[in-house]
């Protein structure tokens, strides 16, 4: 409720403020503004040539017949929407989309819930909290191949997880990495482990920014620990939740590293998510047109999320 009022207040005061800004800019002169645009140039060139242009190239490739033999040819044969149709009729694109959604769901739910739980536990000052936060952020900073390798080892038949389960009375080792269902959840689980530290770090900062008076008021009202979490912390970090939610969904959607390291899309096609399927079609089947078409589908979904994200940060900055 309070947040809504503040936001409305900001919106009302925004109009005169921006008018004043305009006057200011005119007074300061065009020179500074023009020169500051020049600061954008080097970045625009690099990201234009190696970020944006490849995106157009991707769409162009998806509309042509591009194979290993013709990838360096000056022109490619026009294929229209054939590559897109082939992706769906071959029966690969739909299941890949479904698997992507499973990964996104698992990573997002685990990543957000565990990230918040860790932040609540870590907001206390003290040696253990300090050490644990450092440990988690270090694991986050490690190369994905290192994290993927160790989890591939831990989740193997002779790995630690199965050894512990055996000790607890499970007779057969669980097929974490070679059963179609288990393997998809395994790569999603490791993806979640890799994103929890970042979410915990951001949530922790948001929790530390809550005014102490809010907690005092809550404890005067006789709130329990759980009541503090439920009625003070969760509502206070709502804006942070919105930003992290989009970032986590996009992270989960793009996830590629752990699939590459732990299962390489297998067993069979069990961990072929949309981005990984596009990669395999291009670099294992050498059908670059087909791989590009699959990737275009992935890009379209990301664009939708980007719009949501851009809106939410714009709202943040207005507040």
């Amino acid at each position: 409720m309070q947040a809504t009022t503040v936001r409305a207040g900001a919106a009302v005061s925004a109009a005169p403020a921006s008018a004043a800004g305009r006057v200011n800019r005119v007074r300061r002169g065009d020179v500074t503004t023009r020169h500051r645009w020049a600061f954008l140039l080097p970045g625009a060139v690099l990201m234009g040539v190696l970020g944006l242009f490849p995106l157009f190239q991707l769409v162009w490739m998806s509309l042509h017949d591009v194979t290993q033999a013709t990838i360096n040819a000056p022109t490619w044969a026009w294929a229209g929407l054939h590559n897109f149709a082939a992706g769906f009729t071959s029966g690969n694109s739909w299941p890949a989309l479904g698997r992507t959604l499973v990964v996104v769901l698992v990573v997002t739910v685990l990543g957000m819930a565990a990230g918040f739980a860790a932040a609540v536990a870590l907001r206390t000052s003290g040696r253990w909290s300090g050490f644990l936060l450092g440990l988690m952020v270090f694991v986050w900073a490690l190369p994905p191949v290192v994290n993927g390798s160790v989890w591939k080892f831990l989740l193997g038949d002779d790995g630690l997880v199965n050894t512990v389960l055996h000790g607890l009375g499970v007779s057969q080792p669980l097929p974490f990495l070679y059963d179609p269902t288990w393997s998809l959840f395994s790569v999603a689980f490791v993806g979640a482990i890799a994103v929890i530290p970042f979410n915990a770090l951001v949530y922790r900062a948001a929790l530390l920014a809550i005014e102490p008076e809010v907690f005092e008021a809550a404890s005067l009202d006789g709130a329990s620990r759980w009541g503090e979490v439920r009625h003070v912390m969760i509502p206070s970090v709502r804006a942070t939740t919105a930003v992290l939610l989009v970032l986590t969904i996009v992270y989960a959607f793009r996830s590629f590293d752990f699939i590459y390291v732990m299962t390489y899309g297998g067993p069979g096609t069990a961990t072929n998510t949309l981005p990984f399927l596009g990669f395999l079609q291009a670099f294992a089947q050498y059908d670059f047109g087909l791989g590009a078409a699959t990737s275009v589908l992935a890009v379209i979904l990301v664009l939708v999320l980007a719009v949501v994200y851009a809106r939410s940060i714009r709202k943040e900055e207005k507040d």
């Binding site: 490849p54 190239q57 991707l58 360096n72 793009r254 590629f256 596009g278 291009a282 980007a306």
Partner: peptide
């Protein structure tokens, strides 16, 4: 500029590796 940065930041790396392989080859 901001909008483009957000989009570029979010693109799957696999969607960039295919066209870049062709462009870097050229």
């Amino acid at each position: 500029g901001l909008g483009l940065l957000v989009v570029l930041q979010m693109l799957p790396q696999t969607a960039q590796v295919i066209p870049l392989f062709s462009l870097l080859g050229q």
